[in-house]
Design a protein around this nucleic acid. Structure first.
Lengths: 337, 337
DNA sequence: ATAGGTTGTCGAAGCGCTTCGATACCGAAT
DNA sequence: ATTCGGTATCGAAGCGCTTCGACAACCTAT
């Protein structure tokens, strides 16, 4: 293992000079710099992470806390995680993967040990138990998701309220009067995951404004649960001509069931999904959808955190504006006959 | 930030004593130990990761390199990653998330900087460019997946050869004579991802042994591609009564298409999937399947790596035996009429 | 009673790096 | 000629921890 001292000796300079060449924190003459850089290359030098962390009290590591559950939004979570890792690297940071399992303890451990310079939390609940700790330790952090109380916190999320509104608007504009919403599993609403409630809020208030009827039903996802949910919806509101789905694992079952019942999409029923673009495009019908911008969220989170770590950050809430992409699953409402 | 020295002072002992209490590397009297532990608790002491890494030249971090692609086996990858993180924690290790993006450079960087004590590589290709480096730097590592040449490497994977054989066996035993295999996307075979070829190998040799006809077709996944692939298969082998799918994103489209064509599962066609249990159970038909044991693979990988790091490891290849779970998508072959 | 072995504790020497003066040199301004 | 502000470099002091050798204090077998 090559050390700074060896590089210094090889280049005929002092250790501190090499360090300054590396960090650029003091001016170094061009000739010296080149000599040092050459030695670094020739010896294949890599600075030792531990020593660096100790001396500078910065680890250049960002901790990313992902939910332990693997039963929901898996592709989204994965995409965010990868975006975070990739983006962090471009800023010179590595990413430490923490699972939700340890819960608040992980926050304590990471903050206490100086393992990471800051952390990004995913799957934040409305009243998350990690938040008090985060505030108390003033650990630089960014949340992906929106808790109930955001004071003193930096958050990034899709504007789910606007997302809901946008979906209703799109359908209403096409003349749909009776709209059904197939939501996440009941457990999600019970856990108060925020995004689900905000979406619902947007859906409801916009439909009220536009004077369309809205029926919301949570759904476990999967074929059987979807069958039951859909039957109930059509029973209660036979005139339903627009459906909004916010549940990845309900999308394909829904389409299969509609097909099976002889309801054509979009001639008889229009479907709007809130899901990653990939899901919308891979489905058996190209779905009109509002994308969940996983990459963008990951990138934003990292950039905000890095800004904080460099002292130019601020606490604020970034809501990404939703974008609705029209594909072939929505069209004008069938004329009422 | 509380330091070791402060704990020592508070407990009225020397710093080294505290260190030995923490590490257990030398015997400490019960009374002293308790006094120290109390001080640690009272002061809320957390050892500094950087200092520890520097002094002991062990970071207690495992690097996990995940593929950058988010278009394949996402749930499996995620599950493995989470299993790795969770299991690593039980052994006192944290996990550093590296994306495939940096490629071999990441190996160099991590090995050189002492950032991680060892690494786990996912999505290993038959002739992976990271392998030479791994061998050269004798970086402790474990691969998830099987490269062409495993000398000097430790690998963990599902025994895909046996998996293929098992699927054929199950169908053959039920009297199916004409079996179709819907495989991964052509790109996967071109990339020589190993597992696909090994599965195919198992499928082919077992079907030869059992005297059943086998037709293998790669498939992009998604509804449209599946429609084309299925049509071709049924055109070429109208008598096909058993289908084996190894492609998560083809499963649901396949079932939808069969339903649409009036082919009942399992009365007319039996379907066996090679996929995570969750996919098999959430599908519109409970699928008979061979599970991809993501958790187990992650756990194995960590345990092997930890063993290596503690000096009791050995280079070997662990192939996890496949298990076929019979659900409701397979049954006796329809009588030939 | 003495040598020999345990057991429990301490002090000090680093691990490889960053960073803060201090120093030496240069040209420009007085 | 002297002073001043810059620039380029060095030396040394730590960062917080681990670990090794030393050393008391004690127990046991002779």
């Amino acid at each position: 293992m090559v050390t700074l001292a060896e590089v210094a000796q090889h280049a005929g300079v002092s250790a501190s000079t090499v360090s300054y060449v590396l960090s650029g924190k003091r001016s170094i003459s061009a000739t010296t710099r080149q000599r040092v850089e050459r030695s670094i290359r020739e010896l294949g030098y890599h600075p030792n992470a531990g020593a660096r962390a100790l001396a500078s009290s910065k680890s250049n590591i960002i901790a990313l806390m992902v939910p332990l559950r693997t039963d929901m939004y898996v592709p989204v979570m994965m995409e965010i995680a990868i975006a975070v890792a990739t983006c962090a690297r471009t800023h010179g940071y590595d990413v430490l993967l923490l699972t939700g399992e340890e819960g608040p303890d992980a926050v304590r451990r990471v903050a206490g040990s100086g393992l990471a310079d800051g952390m990004i939390l995913m799957d934040v609940e409305l009243d998350d138990e990690r938040l008090p700790l985060l505030r108390a330790t003033d650990q630089p952090s960014v949340l992906i998701g929106l808790p109930a109380d955001t004071t003193g916190l930096t958050c990034v999320d899709l504007d789910f309220r606007a997302t809901g509104a946008l979906c209703v608007e799109h359908l209403a504009k096409q003349g749909h009067q009776d709209i059904a919403v197939i939501g996440e599993a009941p457990a999600v609403y019970e856990r108060h995951t925020g995004f689900a409630e905000r979406t619902l809020d947007g859906l409801r208030s916009r439909s009220r404004e536009l004077g369309v009827r809205l029926l919301h039903r949570p759904c476990e996802g999967g074929y059987d649960a979807m069958a039951v949910t859909l039957a109930r919806i059509l029973d209660e509101r036979p005139g339903t001509s627009g459906i909004i789905v916010q549940n990845e694992s309900a999308v394909e079952p829904l389409l299969a069931l509609l097909r099976q019942q002889g309801r054509a999409v979009p001639e008889d029923v229009s479907v709007v999904a809130i899901c990653p673009d990939q899901v919308a495009m891979q489905a058996s019908v190209r779905l009109t959808s509002v994308a969940i911008p996983a990459q963008e969220m990951g990138r934003h989170a990292v950039e905000h955190l890095v800004a904080k770590l460099e002292g130019r950050g601020s606490d604020d809430v970034v809501l990404i504006a939703p974008e609705l992409t029209v594909r072939t699953s929505t069209g004008p409402a069938p004329s009422r006959s």
